[in-house]
Lab assay of single mutants.
Amino acid sequence: KTVHVDGVEYRFNNPEEADKFVKRLVKEKNGNVEVRGDTYHVE
């Protein structure tokens, strides 16, 4: 899984860790998540 945040790319081998990371980011930023294939885009 890959997570894109503000143009920075984070790669996770463990999908659960990627999910936790995304949830935390969305809370912090009050942002939205767009999923494209295996990539999460957080804005």
Rank of each mutant, 00 (worst) to 15 (best):
K1A: 13
K1H: 13
K1R: 12
K1T: 14
K1D: 02
K1P: 10
K1L: 14
K1V: 15
T2R: 05
T2P: 02
T2S: 08
T2I: 14
T2G: 01
T2Y: 07
T2E: 02
T2N: 04
V3A: 00
V3M: 02
V3W: 04
V3Y: 05
V3Q: 01
V3C: 13
V3I: 11
V3L: 04
H4S: 11
H4R: 12
H4A: 05
H4Y: 15
H4P: 01
H4F: 15
H4G: 02
H4T: 13
H4E: 08
H4I: 15
H4N: 12
V5N: 01
V5P: 00
V5K: 00
V5I: 09
V5W: 11
V5D: 01
V5A: 02
V5F: 11
V5E: 01
D6A: 04
D6F: 08
D6C: 15
D6V: 01
D6K: 03
D6M: 05
D6S: 02
D6Y: 06
D6H: 04
D6Q: 03
G7H: 02
G7E: 01
G7W: 00
G7R: 00
G7T: 01
G7M: 01
G7D: 02
G7Y: 02
G7V: 02
G7K: 00
G7P: 01
V8L: 05
V8Y: 05
V8P: 00
V8T: 05
V8D: 01
V8R: 07
V8M: 06
V8N: 03
V8Q: 04
E9T: 11
E9D: 03
E9C: 15
E9K: 05
E9Y: 12
E9H: 03
E9V: 14
E9R: 08
E9P: 04
Y10Q: 00
Y10D: 00
Y10A: 00
Y10V: 02
Y10E: 00
Y10W: 03
Y10L: 02
Y10K: 00
R11D: 01
R11Q: 04
R11P: 00
R11W: 11
R11K: 09
F12S: 02
F12V: 01
F12Y: 00
F12W: 01
F12H: 01
F12Q: 00
F12R: 00
F12P: 00
N13V: 07
N13P: 09
N13A: 12
N13Y: 03
N13G: 05
N13I: 07
N13C: 15
N13W: 04
N13Q: 10
N13L: 10
N13F: 06
N13D: 13
N14G: 03
N14H: 03
N14F: 03
N14L: 04
N14R: 02
N14V: 03
N14Q: 03
N14C: 13
N14K: 02
N14I: 03
N14A: 02
P15R: 09
P15F: 09
P15K: 12
P15E: 13
P15N: 05
P15I: 11
P15V: 09
P15W: 12
P15S: 13
P15L: 09
P15T: 10
E16V: 04
E16T: 04
E16I: 05
E16L: 04
E16M: 05
E16D: 10
E16R: 04
E16N: 03
E16K: 04
E16C: 14
E16H: 04
E16F: 06
E17S: 02
E17M: 02
E17A: 04
E17I: 01
E17C: 14
E17D: 11
E17N: 01
E17G: 00
E17W: 02
E17Y: 00
E17L: 02
A18Q: 02
A18Y: 11
A18S: 01
A18W: 07
A18H: 02
A18R: 05
A18G: 01
A18T: 01
D19A: 11
D19M: 13
D19F: 13
D19W: 15
D19T: 06
D19E: 13
D19K: 10
D19N: 05
K20G: 07
K20Q: 13
K20R: 13
K20D: 14
K20W: 11
K20H: 10
K20T: 11
K20F: 09
K20I: 12
F21M: 01
F21D: 02
F21A: 01
F21H: 01
F21C: 05
F21G: 02
F21V: 01
F21R: 00
F21T: 00
V22F: 12
V22K: 05
V22H: 04
V22Q: 03
V22W: 09
V22I: 13
V22S: 02
K23D: 08
K23M: 12
K23P: 02
K23H: 06
K23R: 11
K23V: 07
K23Y: 02
R24G: 08
R24I: 08
R24P: 01
R24Y: 12
R24C: 15
R24D: 12
R24T: 09
L25Y: 08
L25D: 01
L25C: 05
L25F: 07
L25T: 03
L25H: 03
L25V: 05
L25I: 10
L25S: 03
L25W: 07
L25P: 00
V26G: 03
V26L: 14
V26I: 13
V26A: 10
V26F: 12
V26P: 02
V26H: 06
V26T: 07
V26S: 07
V26Y: 12
K27S: 11
K27Q: 13
K27D: 11
K27P: 02
K27V: 06
K27R: 12
K27M: 12
K27I: 10
K27H: 08
K27E: 11
K27C: 15
E28F: 11
E28L: 12
E28I: 09
E28N: 08
E28Q: 09
E28T: 07
E28D: 09
K29V: 11
K29P: 04
K29D: 06
K29Y: 15
K29S: 13
K29W: 15
K29L: 15
K29G: 12
K29Q: 10
N30K: 08
N30R: 08
N30W: 11
N30S: 09
N30E: 07
N30F: 10
N30I: 05
N30L: 06
N30G: 14
N30P: 05
N30T: 05
N30V: 06
N30D: 08
G31N: 08
G31T: 10
G31H: 11
G31E: 08
G31Y: 15
G31P: 08
G31S: 09
G31M: 14
N32Q: 11
N32G: 06
N32H: 13
N32E: 06
N32L: 11
N32V: 13
V33M: 06
V33P: 05
V33K: 04
V33T: 04
V33D: 04
V33N: 05
V33C: 15
V33I: 08
E34I: 15
E34M: 13
E34N: 10
E34F: 14
E34H: 11
E34W: 14
E34T: 14
E34L: 13
E34C: 15
E34D: 07
E34G: 05
E34Q: 12
E34R: 10
E34A: 10
V35C: 14
V35H: 04
V35I: 13
V35P: 04
V35W: 11
V35G: 04
V35S: 06
V35N: 05
V35E: 05
V35Q: 06
V35M: 09
V35T: 06
V35F: 10
R36T: 07
R36I: 13
R36S: 10
R36Q: 08
R36E: 08
R36N: 08
R36A: 07
G37K: 05
G37R: 06
G37M: 09
G37N: 07
G37T: 09
G37D: 09
G37C: 14
G37L: 09
G37Y: 12
D38W: 04
D38N: 11
D38M: 05
D38R: 04
D38C: 13
D38S: 05
D38T: 05
D38A: 05
T39L: 08
T39W: 07
T39G: 11
T39S: 12
T39P: 06
T39K: 06
T39C: 14
T39N: 08
T39V: 11
Y40M: 07
Y40N: 05
Y40Q: 08
Y40A: 07
Y40I: 14
Y40P: 05
Y40V: 12
Y40C: 07
Y40S: 07
Y40W: 12
Y40R: 03
H41F: 15
H41C: 15
H41R: 06
H41S: 09
H41K: 09
H41Q: 10
H41V: 12
H41G: 06
H41P: 06
H41E: 10
H41I: 14
H41W: 15
V42Y: 07
V42W: 09
V42P: 06
V42S: 06
V42A: 08
V42T: 08
V42Q: 08
V42C: 07
V42I: 12
V42R: 04
V42L: 07
V42E: 07
V42D: 08
E43H: 13
E43I: 14
E43G: 11
E43Y: 15
E43P: 08
E43K: 12
E43L: 14
E43V: 14
E43R: 12
E43C: 15
